[in-house]
Each structure stands twice: as structure tokens, then as C-alpha cells.
Design a protein around this nucleic acid. Sequence first.
DNA 1: TTGAAAGCGCTAACAA
DNA 2: TTGTTAGCGCTTTCAA
Lengths: 346, 346
Amino acid sequence: MERITRVSSRAPAVAPTLADVAERAGVSRQTVSNAVNNPDLLRGDTLARVQEAILELGYVPNRAARNLRTRASHLIGLRMSPVQEGTANAAMDRFVHSLVWTSREAGYHVLLFSGEGPDPLEGYDDLMRSTAVDAFVVTDTYLGNPQAAWLRERRAPFVAFGRPWDDDGAKHPWVDVDGAAGTELATTHLLDKGHTRIAWIGWRKDSFIGEDRRAGWSRALRERGHATTGLASRVEDTVWSGREASAVLLDEARPSAFVCASDTLAMGVLHTLAERGLHPGHDIAVVGFDDSQVAQVVHPGLTSVRQPLEEVAIAVVRSLEDLLATPSQVGEGLLLTPTLTVRGSS
Amino acid sequence: MERITRVSSRAPAVAPTLADVAERAGVSRQTVSNAVNNPDLLRGDTLARVQEAILELGYVPNRAARNLRTRASHLIGLRMSPVQEGTANAAMDRFVHSLVWTSREAGYHVLLFSGEGPDPLEGYDDLMRSTAVDAFVVTDTYLGNPQAAWLRERRAPFVAFGRPWDDDGAKHPWVDVDGAAGTELATTHLLDKGHTRIAWIGWRKDSFIGEDRRAGWSRALRERGHATTGLASRVEDTVWSGREASAVLLDEARPSAFVCASDTLAMGVLHTLAERGLHPGHDIAVVGFDDSQVAQVVHPGLTSVRQPLEEVAIAVVRSLEDLLATPSQVGEGLLLTPTLTVRGSS
DNA sequence: TTGAAAGCGCTAACAA
DNA sequence: TTGTTAGCGCTTTCAA
């Protein structure tokens, strides 16, 4: 039983405006505006009368008009990079979910746009200049932050998910996950399990993120006095590369465990193990990175470093709010720590 | 070397307006507006002069003002359902990518929003009444279309990705993928490989989509005169359920192949096979549904039915354009055919 | 082919 | 505490 009577649930042909509400409540338009945006300013009975009129008419402020007047859209722009088929990479999608969720609570919506091609700047310009969004969340910082300088120069508010790797003096706010801490966690976990020869399969050297994650692996091994020599491989982020690299490492370095820069590479390791009749978690331990769906559903479960994307989203939105409230403020950086989800593969 | 001189690439402190351009070009504001929206109306030299001024000033029309005036936002609303951890389901994310891409070409952006809870209507109302979006794309039709009737009653333009299963008389436009055709394709593929005892693992009976996909399996078997009795199982969409169901079926019905309603369930089958030392594609064939990343990267590759989500997005956007151009028009339905991506598991 | 007037719905600034 | 005035930047309508 619906108790509340929604008078206008049938949606009137034409949407009511402030003026309609004002007339109905017997007040001025400004008073209605205040009732919506600054209810504290009204006297109790006036507020009640206006709110009743609002309810009766089913009034909802027109966004375009409000945007025009306040010069704000309450929209956050996010560029979506194309899906990568054949990989396990879906961190971006998980992040989008978290961001949408968190933004809503802050009164923002997420506007998705796509760059035409490889140019990461494509698409930002138009949205910014047409005042379609209030700010951007920049995620594709894997090769440094070409966008950061560019957006900064154009005075576009933005928060980056990802460190300004190549620019220590960067003054924009950012949030990132400590990849090295993640792989260190993974490596220590394996060391605790008794493994000593732990191999690394990561990305090519020009990847900042890849080098960061690799550092966690080597740090953990060195701290416990174990060797890293000959145990590392740097390849492309594909299943095939992970398979090849692990095959070579198994033959030449005889590791008992693998730590990988991504779940995609870890899946490659699982391929090699399957081909050789080896059982992950039993014969050889494997740890991936990103706690993708793949890690969650593959047999016997892939242990993986999980980025706290929900927290990232919260921090990003908070940062965005600060930024929009105080545009001149110097941005801060925040580094979050990932966790390790242990499954059958280790 | 940048050849084109972007005079205002440094972004002026305050964005230029129509009036600024008009003054610079020595014409009226209206003429500038026409230069942007109806260039055909201008004489060649006037147009050139105005365009030059636009370029020099770096003028981009203000979206809020335009939206207010034209009562259109060129935004498409899409509700994101929460991520399902522990499953392989990511069709939604792939679809979002395609939709963003396709929308851009049609001059639209995608606005993401999230429902608060299980109520699929939550969130639509506010966006619609505040004229934040021009239309919606409705995707969560797995339990019929409660949104359809609701949105229709409120005169909200929308296109559904998913059939109006429970309402033959539905008059809204929709695009869907023929699930039965997909599983029929999968089953026929297995029959061609020599399998005759092909089991089905699908969803509970109250799932329209699940029953549709199941129909393709049984149709293919019946057409070739093979049995279906005792070969089907209906469970929840989890890896665990798929594992359990396949274990029972293997013991009781001795199938040589499995067709599943989802990659998640298919992964469950792979678990059972791994536990029994059976090799997918060699001892037992397995086919999933959705061609998820999981299917793509798992060893030895999971054969899976692939929904043509790019085509779906194109059809949805086209439908949306028709709808917005001719609001009164009766919506049509379009059923697309999936393909089968064959991998090692079959 | 171009221009002038009007107003979309809202809120900031100020006045009562 | 409430109301009045003005105008955000644009496009529709109509006149020149």
C-alpha cells in the first residue's frame, strides 16, 4: 500500500517552474528558490507552505537554468579508454562503479566521454570550454601525466587517479594506490609460506607503474636476504607474454612462486602450469594484481593484490569537492595501501 | 611543429560568449548563432568572418545556456547496477564502452547514475524531471520491464537493451540479442564435434533470459533427435552453483559436453573438471555465454557465445535519435544475433 | 541575408 | 524574513 499520495505522479504535460510554485504558495519566486537551496532563511510556516506546494506540483528545479545561473553543472567528466580484449584488466570499470556511487552522495553525476584515438587530450577540451562538466577525473596516467600540465594550463579543475610519476613538482591533487606495497605484501605472503625463490613477471621498463610494482617484489626479497637475480622478467601485458615468460623462468631459474604485475600475466603463468601438469597453489604459487573477476572465478582461485578502489573514489571525490570549493588551493597527493586477497593459487 | 595558431589556447580568464564573437566579427549575436547552427543561412563572406572570430576567440557555445533554451541536454542517462564480485559478468561494462563511443558520434554524452538500492526506478525520476538527460537507456530488464511502464507513464523517452519479456503489447523501442540463437549455435557446434549428450546449466525458471537461452539448447538437440531429459540443471548464477551442478550431472547423466547460460557457470564446470583431473576441450567440452574476459584468458580458453554489443549500442543510439526526433512514434524492437567464439574448451 | 526583441528558469545582489 | 530587479548565454520569432 502506497501511503504517500503523489499528486503529480502522472507527470503534467509541462513541468512546473519556480513561478508556478510561488504562485501556488503565495510567495515570490525567490522565496521558493530559498526554500530549495537555503531553507534556513525561511520562517517555519512559510517553508512548510512552500514545501507543500512543491510536493503538490511535483516541482524539480530545472538543471539547465540552474547550471546557467550558477555556472556549475554538477557533472564530473571521465574519459573511458577502450576495452582491452584478451586481458583481465577491468580495474577501470570497477573504479567507474565506485566513482558513480560516491559522486552521487556528493551531488554529482559522472559524464562519460571517449577520446577519439590514442591522444589522451582529445575530448577534454570541448567539454571544458562548453562548461559541460565542473571537473575531470583523470585516470590514464600510466605514461606520466601529459593531461595534467595541459589541463592545468587551461585552468580545468581535475583530480588524478594516479601519481604524477614524471613530475615531482606537480601541483594538482591526486590519489593513487601504492603498487610497491601491494607486491611487497604479495611477496612477503609467499615468503611466509616458505617460498624463497620467487620470480617476478612485470611490464616493460618504460612503465612507471610496472617499475613501482617491481620494486615491492625486490624490496621484500632483499629485506629477507633472498636473491632476485635472474628471477625477473619484463614483458608486455598479455596472457601470451606471461605464459612465455613463466616457461622460460621455470626452466632457467626454478622459482617456486611467481608474483605478477597483473592478473593478465598471472593467467599466463597458469597456462604454463596447466600445460606442464603443474598445480597452482600446490606445485607452484602464483599471485596476480588487481583482483579481477578472472582471479575470483578461475580454478583454484588466483591470489591477487586488490586496489581499494572504493576508497580511491571517495578520496577523489573529496578532493574534487575541496578543489571546487577553493579553486586556488594547492593539490595534495594521497597514497592508499592495497590489500592481498589470498586464494587457492598460493 | 604546430602549424595552426590557436590564439586562445591559454584559455582566457573568462570564456567568450556569442556577444564577444559578434562584436569582433561586426555582426549581431544572432548571426553568430546561425554561423554555428545554420551556416547555410549566411553569405559566404559573412560566415568566413564569423568563423575567423570564433577561432580567434576560441569560442565554444555554453552548454547550459543552450540546454536551457533548446530544452535538451544531449545527455543520455544510464543506470549502473552494482558490480557483481565473484562472477564473470561484465557485459554491462562492455556495453557502456560501446554506448559511450557510439553516442559521441551522434553528439551525445552518457551520464551515469546509480540506483540506491534494489529498486530499479530509483534515480530515474530526478534526472528526468530536472531535465538533466534527454533520454534513458534501460538495461536491467532481466526480470521483465518494470521501468518500461513507469517511464512510459511519465513520458520519459527511453530505449531498452532487453526485450519486454512480460509485455507483448509494449510499445517502446528495444534492442536485444537472441539468446536462444546463441545457445543453439553453441549446441550445434558441439553436435558437429560429435557430442550427443550435451548438458545444460542455466538459471532458475523465473529468469526470462535464462529460459530463452535454455530454449536454444533444447531446440538444437531436439532437431537432431537427441535427448534432453535429465541433462538440464537450473541454478543460481554463481561459480559455486555451476561447480555443484556439473558434478551432479557428470555423475548422473554422463554428458560429454556442457552448455551454460553464463561464463560464470561455465567456470564452475571448469572447477569440477579440474578437481576430477579432466581436461576441458579434451575430455569434456564446455561452452559459456558472454565472451567475458574470463573466457578469453582462462586456460585453455573458454568457448563462449558473444553478444554483438557494439551493434547493440549502434542500434540503441539510432533508436534514441528516432525517438527524440519523433516523440510520438511507436517504438520498434530489434533482435540481433550473437556469434560463437570457439576456444580450447571445445 | 541579417538584426532586434523576447524569454527559457533560475539565483545573486540588493531593497524593503 | 521576504520581495524586486537583473541577467546568466543562448535560440526562436519576427521584422527589416
